[in-house]
Design a protein around this nucleic acid. Sequence first.
DNA 1: CCCTCTTCTTAACCTAGATCAATTTCATTT
DNA 2: AAATGAAATTGATCTAGGTTAAGAAGAGGG
Lengths: 193, 193
Amino acid sequence: MNIVQNNKLLYYLKKWVDISETEEETILSAFKETSIKKKKDLLVPDDICEYIYFITKGCLRSYFVDEKGVEHIYQIRMDNNWISDLESFFSQRPSKYYIEALEDTQMLRISAEELEQLYKKVPNLERYFRILFQKAYVNALERLNSTMWDSAIDRYNNMLKENPDMFQRVPLVYIASYLGITPESLSRIRKKK
Amino acid sequence: MNIVQNNKLLYYLKKWVDISETEEETILSAFKETSIKKKKDLLVPDDICEYIYFITKGCLRSYFVDEKGVEHIYQIRMDNNWISDLESFFSQRPSKYYIEALEDTQMLRISAEELEQLYKKVPNLERYFRILFQKAYVNALERLNSTMWDSAIDRYNNMLKENPDMFQRVPLVYIASYLGITPESLSRIRKKK
DNA sequence: CCCTCTTCTTAACCTAGATCAATTTCATTT
DNA sequence: AAATGAAATTGATCTAGGTTAAGAAGAGGG
């Protein structure tokens, strides 16, 4: 297994919980390296999302397609973040979403069952995920509030401040959708500055 | 401690994780019963949210006030749900939010520090919260997608289906804010049906 | 290095829901 | 039962952002 990829996962785990040397081994051996080429799908609707992925390098988007065939992006994730369809992953029921690579991407993956095993061997990993989901939940509520009550301009400026790197790596069409607006509106917002 | 209140908390815990009889004792003795009168604040901005609360009976709303002095409700919680400002609770930093009782409300509360102690004594409780936050996160993303891409009418109908009881107990002004619209708009939506 | 496809921009027009202002209904206190 | 204040409705008007349509600018594959 690639040493650089390992280090990243453990580095982020150890930011939040204590992990012993033997546990490090156990964790690393439970994850499996995978990669996906740009424009390929990691998940498509009606499939069960079998894995949760830690992105070591690359970029992916999660989206769904409405009745009119329009894509709606609700997540864009880059290096050192987790991605999955948690609803499908934990319920083991068919997903509603796509997950697609926006760049050639390398990941570490683990299945739901393997993760359950790993929780037993490394209880602090469950603590890690408790903290991770807790923070993810707080962030999602923040984003909800911002979507409901801030103008598109404010949300754009905020994103520019919080995620400047995204603008370097992700086409504006996708960023627009993520912000909940049309590419035309985003273009007008950017022009005004 | 009131036996009815106890049972509810344990009932919901045991839906998701195994709890032994001795652990039940430990959990119950860690929580403290409190109550709050209608229209009183459980939390105000700049205070640290000291507790996480399990509502055994009653109803509360969480909201913030913007620069123009307008209230924006992002959470309405009733019987058998948790409420807190998780951001403040876990960081122990000042909150941005209000939590106010919409009815006379009874709760079981625990402080951040007590909860940490309890995690050590009852590891499965951390598992419970891992599952709770995971589900809360998935729900928040669903709500985000709905807010971004569904019409106000669709969101109203959906809420009517998912939370009919809320309409019995919560004034429409608050429901409007929770849906991300004005009371005037909600009134017009309801008229059309 | 050209060709095709994707991304981005611009302009004219449209609409869902906001804002403002007034009135009615309901609930709580005295 | 009256008085007061909060909640809900209604109508007129306004606006942020959507829709439609077209063209310009990039960029990756043959």
